[in-house]
Structure formats: structure tokens, C-alpha cells
Amino acid sequence: MTTSDVIRNFITNEILHNPSVIPLGDDESLIESGIIDSLGIMTLLAFVEREFSVEIPGDDLLPENFASISAITALIERQMVR
């Protein structure tokens, strides 16, 4: 399963407000569409750190890094090579 798929599954099963958007596309807007809110991001962060053994530093806690599955995947991959 790719990183994007893991993130998609988590958002779909644990966070999603509205099941009618399934399946979520990689570039689907998560914030503007209200799929994830500020607590949703914290939930997602805890999951990402646990699942991928990465630490997301304060500098990267930016809304744009959580704007879509693609953005979240890129954030994780940046942390993994650090």
C-alpha cells in the first residue's frame, strides 16, 4: 500500500465528515471542503507520526501541508529523508 493509500484510508475511516466524497482523490481539497478541521489535523498528525515513525516539526505545521492527500504524502516523504 502506498503512503497516499494509507493516508486516504485513515481520513476515510477515521476523520471524514461526509462519506459522500468517497473515494477521495489525491488532490481533493481537504481543508476548503471541510473534510478536515483543526482537530482533524491533530488526529492525522498523531497517526502519521505513529504510522511512519516521523516527527513533524513546528515549522511544518502549516495548513498548506495538509491541504490534500498529495501534500500530506509529500510532507511525510520529506520527513523520512531527514
Partner: peptide, 17 residues
């Protein structure tokens, strides 16, 4: 509310997609 949400209860859908 936070605990309930993190226990798996989904938030109220405020945006129709």
C-alpha cells in the same frame, strides 16, 4: 467532545460536498 471524536464519533458535517 475531543475525546468522543477521537473515540471514533464523526463530527457533524457542516459542508455539503
Amino acid at each position: 467532545n475531543i475525546i468522543a471524536r477521537l473515540a471514533g464519533l464523526k463530527p457533524h458535517a457542516t459542508t455539503k460536498l
